[in-house]
Each structure stands twice: as C-alpha cells, then as structure tokens.
C-alpha cells in the first residue's frame, strides 16, 4: 500500500465493530470512526466488522475505499445467495 492511501477489509457481523491501525491513529481515529460507522449503517445496517489500515489517507480517499469495500462485500454476498 502506498502512502496517502488506506486498506479496508469488511466482513459480515452481528454488530458493528471497527479495528483501526495506522501511524496517525490519535489524530484520525475519531474521524475514521465517524465515517466508517456512517457508511456501515447506510450500506449494511451496521452489521459489519470493518478493519482499516491507514497510511495517511485524506477523507475523500477513506470514504472511497470504504465504499468500495462494502460494495465488493455485498456483491460477494449477493452472488452467494444466488448460488444457494
């Protein structure tokens, strides 16, 4: 992963949780918590565990990466349902 970017992993879960790691955790922790929770609520009614490894991502980057992760996770889930 390059600097100014972040890696997001999303998995289905009973309730919302966030695991956040990065150099600037103290500065960006609250911002990240707010954004991740908002997207998790909207995309999956909060039923998701989110892991973020941050290398100094701007808010736009963080949002784009989280949205992509949720979209991909939901896509996989949908395909799973179709297969069943």
């Amino acid at each position: 992963m390059e600097s100014s970017d972040c890696m997001v992993v999303v998995a289905p879960a009973e309730s919302y949780s966030l695991e956040y790691g990065g150099q600037n955790e103290a500065i960006f922790g609250r911002r990240t918590e707010r954004i991740a929770r908002e997207i998790a609520e909207r995309r999956a009614s909060g039923r998701a565990s989110v892991r973020i490894q941050d290398r100094g991502a701007l808010e736009v980057t963080l949002r784009a990466r989280i949205e992509t992760a949720f979209e991909r996770a939901l896509e996989v889930e949908k395909e799973g349902e179709v297969a069943r």
Partner: peptide
Amino acid sequence: KDAARHLVSRFVGEI
C-alpha cells in the same frame, strides 16, 4: 476499476 472509479469521482467532486 471500481476502486479507481469511486476514488476519481470523489476527488473530482470534492478536492
């Protein structure tokens, strides 16, 4: 492609 599309559209709209 999906990740880049989300990133670029946000950058263009917000930065």
